[in-house]
Amino acid sequence: MVDKKITDLEIEAILEAFSNSQPKVTDRTGQSSSFRVLFCFINLYVLLFIVLYFLLKINQVAELDPNSRTEEFLIVLEGRIFVLFWLLVFLNMTAYFNFGFKAVCLVILVYVLNSTIDNTILFSDLKDLLDESHFFVFMITIPLYVIAVAGLMIIYKDNFETFSPLTSEALSGKAA
């Protein structure tokens, strides 16, 4: 018979004491639900416009309408989507590694604000372009995107280093 050094009652007490910390350790993001919603919105927004770009591109190749201003919109969308895609990649990477997230948010915020100012100044004279529904949607929703990025930057918690994938692996490695 093995002589137990610790009783069942003591084991239960230890398990109960650590039960609160268990969900936190398993939660890899360590962020609030509103953060996740905004993060998903930002990802979906950019992906949606990437899809829209390709759809318009295919449509433009298929049928060339001389009265349509889709070509101008495509020039704008192509440049913006290219930059936003790479910024989105960096945003996801920094969120995953929990390093430099706010810096990337700041870059996106400044870039999108600059784009909004440019769009407002450059295309306010092109009434035909504003009549295009997809361009109008693009112009209208950009402020929403700015608000989402600003919100993401504000509610981001950067004091959960122990829960990030890199540091948690490092800790488990040390423990082993």
Partner: peptide, 21 residues
């Protein structure tokens, strides 16, 4: 820092959008 980020963003954006127009 804000002014620098804005200047870089503007420069990149111009290369991808404005110079095509």
């Amino acid at each position: 820092v804000a002014l620098t980020v804005w200047a870089i963003a503007m420069y990149v954006d111009d290369h991808f959008v404005l110079y095509n127009m």
